[in-house]
């Protein structure tokens, strides 16, 4: 019971209070770049959730090995290579065996290799000293939080399209200001997890 409580609180923290995009600023490029339409935003975030979970599952045992042989300083190099190779591999496997899933997610995969959110979640898991289950929950939560932010923001942006905006605020500046307001709404979640599980 205590353990499920802990895991759930990690999941909720990652989705709401410590949202990857809106409070940790990880994965801003896809957040601003691929959020123009609702369906692309959803597809991209589904691919991110998938890769995040997979990357965590793969890097966790690798990290144990690195720690065992006193090679922690290699973490950055090893993780980025593992993630890059993993994404390529997943793409090939999906293409060959599960074409329907490849249709839905595959096109986003190359964009994810250098996505800082994926490397970020892996490093954060280790910095926080999470065990395997905790790491997985944190990663899935981070992915879900990314999806929530992306989908919400896609809605906001579709509305922005039809607004009358001052000339030099058009485009990127107003998008950032809108992101700021969405981020304010997420500030409202501060303390909610402690209140539920505290």
């Amino acid at each position: 019971m205590e353990m499920t409580k802990g895991l759930l609180s990690i999941l909720l923290t990652a989705i709401l209070t410590q949202n990857f995009v809106l409070s940790k600023f990880l994965g801003i490029c896809p957040f601003l770049g691929v959020s123009k339409k609702l369906n692309t935003a959803a597809g991209m975030s589904a691919a991110v959730i998938f890769v995040m979970a997979l990357a965590t599952a793969v890097t966790y045992p690798i990290n144990t090995l690195l720690v065992k042989f006193d090679l922690e300083y290699l973490q950055t190099i090893v993780f980025i290579l593992v993630i890059a190779a993993l994404v390529q591999l997943v793409e090939i496997i999906l293409k060959k065996y599960i074409p329907s899933l490849y249709q839905a997610l595959g096109i986003y995969l190359p964009l994810i290799t250098t996505n800082c959110a994926v490397l970020g979640v892996v490093i954060l898991n280790i910095d926080n000293g999470y065990g395997f289950a905790q790491s997985m929950f944190n990663s899935v939560g981070a992915g879900l939080g990314f999806m929530l932010a992306m989908v919400m923001f896609a809605g906001v942006r579709e509305r922005l399209e039809s607004c009358d905006i001052p000339k030099f605020l058009k485009g990127l500046p107003i998008t950032l200001v809108a992101a700021s307001l969405v981020s304010v709404s997420f500030l409202g979640f501060t303390g909610i997890v402690e209140n539920i599980f505290g």
Partner: peptide, 28 residues
């Protein structure tokens, strides 16, 4: 965090204004 987005947005707008004055394309 919201302040970060806000300041960045305003800064981009200011830079765009100057760029436009000089006849350069705005940042996108």
């Amino acid at each position: 965090p919201p302040g970060g987005f806000f300041v960045f947005g305003i800064l981009m707008a200011v830079v765009n204004r100057f760029a436009e004055k000089k006849g350069k394309p705005r940042a996108e």
